[in-house]
Amino acid sequence: MLEIKNLHARVDGQQILQGIDISIKAGEVHAIMGPNGSGKSTLAFVLAGREGYEITQGEVLFEGRNLAEMKPEERAREGIFLAFQYPVEIPGVSGMNFLKSALNVTRKYRGLSELDAIEFLKLAREKLKLLGMDEKLIQRAVNVGFSGGEKKRSEVFQMAVLEPKLAVLDETDSGLDIDALKIVANGINTLRNPDRAMLIITHYQRLLNYVIPDKVHVLAEGRIVRSGGKELALELEDKGYAMLDSADANAAA
């Protein structure tokens, strides 16, 4: 579903990604782990199409289509969803109307009928119930007045409503206490299915106790330095990112 090939990317003139190769099939959950500054969020923004994040070499194919040629909204309609590390507060824009509009443009794009306010509310309530989340998430302006945990939950809720093919979760676990983490993890597991791929970007192994990945990649200085199964996350947890230095040292030796 997603092919990242030798991806190099630059932000504000600074080369951040220096050759990344990842291939994710439908139904798979991949985790990308790495220390601060390794390029994790850059990768997330490159996938979502943020302005100023420039691909300098390599390519990203989503279902065979070159992402670089697609606007952020096209990527979304094609089925890419980014859960933001820092969801943006948008005062004055009703969360419910925003999400209804988002769902309807996607449905229209996919040739489905648009939902009216009542149908949407019904769907939203079903999803909230499924995720064990509070109705408050659709009653306010987008992310306004939400705690950090509520913002993260809201991202997972949006994902549940929009039903993307590929979900990129950028540090959705950061800043959560254990109860909130469980709710978010449960949400992600609920949304896991054979047609959907997920890319979980995280600094810590903690979330991966609840969401078991098919593959783990370790990112450092803009490169994937190791890839492996779920046990790699445990190893990292055990030894810390310092183990990468010795790995590098070994590789260099």
Binding site: K71, E73, R75, A76, F84, V88, V93, F98, S101, L162
Partner: peptide
């Protein structure tokens, strides 16, 4: 706000 604009676009809004 360019961040808000990007956020809305990542949800499919033109």
């Amino acid at each position: 706000d360019s961040e808000a604009l990007f956020y809305l676009r990542t949800r499919g809004l033109e």
